[in-house]
């Protein structure tokens, strides 16, 4: 009887121990069975983690470029589409191999710190200001972005900001500071969401907002309540760069893969592909290649 009790206690302890490694960390016990059926690649060097902004994925551009690259090189690209802020943070922690983002000022910090290398100009498009058709702030008569924002503040017209530290959000905030306005008050609302969601919210509420043109063109059919009121100010350029994470700072990054991805993107035929993307659907390109 005592022996049995001892054995039982041992089993209980084991089960509890298993659960605690199981339920809290859960690495080995839970990971092992999945490996057979779901093909987890063991060699990290075959994968490239690409941290990027949502606009490159939501526009569909990556759905064209990634399969082409994978077929040519045999790499597998793991596209993690997050805001530019999160993508840069991933780079800074060595959790991504290559970044594709659109916030040059924030990117420069990584380049200066030696975290990002092979910093390469890739493409651009532009930001536009959307607003309700009745345009209470009179944005359609203004050509300069910062003046437009000042008019929105003056009339206290509802403005929807991403508020998510994304590239678009960073750009918007820099324009406010250029306008000498601190955006706060009931008229200035932060959605904390991606571009698509923010556009939908702005359309529902009849608010002003700033978006990249590619996302707007993609969603235009759902956004009949909004129209482009201010555009083509040079300050509204939206510039995309691609960069690798420095293997000397992070030994686990796949630098070769990152180099291959960058070399692919700047190749002339791929740049042409970028320039043509969207023409068939929207009658105009979504991105303008800049690498050559």
């Amino acid at each position: 009887m005592f022996e049995k009790k001892g054995l039982f206690l041992m089993i209980v302890t084991l089960v509890v121990a298993l659960l605690f490694t199981g339920c809290n960390n859960a690495e080995e016990p839970a990971a092992a069975p999945s490996e057979a059926p779901v093909e987890v690649s063991v060699e990290g060097s075959e994968d490239i983690i690409l941290a990027t902004t949502t606009s490159t994925r939501d526009s569909g551009l990556l759905d064209v470029l990634v399969p082409l690259f994978e077929e040519e090189t045999g790499y597998m690209v793991k596209t993690i589409a997050v805001g530019t802020g999160a993508a840069l943070e991933m780079g800074e922690n060595g959790e991504a191999d290559v970044l594709m983002t659109h916030a040059p000022a924030s990117e420069q910090v990584l380049v200066d710190g030696g975290v990002a290398i092979d910093y390469t100009l890739l493409m651009h498009n532009d930001f536009v200001f959307l607003g309700p058709v009745d345009d209470p702030a009179g944005l359609s008569d203004i050509a300069v972005a910062s003046e437009g924002l000042a008019a929105i503040e003056e009339t206290e017209s509802l403005f929807m900001s991403r508020g998510d530290n994304s590239g678009t959000n960073k750009k918007e905030l820099s324009l406010w500071s250029e306008a000498g306005v601190t955006p706060e008050g009931a008229w200035y609302q932060e959605t904390g969401s991606g571009m698509g969601d923010t556009l939908n919210i702005a359309a529902e509420k009849g608010a002003y907002t700033m978006t990249d043109r590619a996302t707007y063109l993609n969603l235009m059919d759902n956004l009949t309540a909004l129209s482009i009121l201010l555009e083509k100010d040079p300050a509204l350029n939206n510039i995309y760069h691609v960069m690798a994470i420095n293997p000397e700072q992070f030994d686990k990054v796949n630098y070769e893969g990152a180099q291959a991805w960058i070399a692919f993107l700047v190749r002339e035929d791929v740049q042409d592909l970028i320039g043509e993307y969207g023409v068939d659907r929207f009658g105009q390109p979504l991105f303008f290649p800049d690498a050559n």
Binding site: A26, A30, A31, S34, E35, V38, V40, K78, I80
Partner: peptide
């Protein structure tokens, strides 16, 4: 195993 189905399983 970050960004793999195994991670999702865990």
């Amino acid at each position: 195993i970050m960004y793999t189905p195994a991670a999702m399983l865990i």
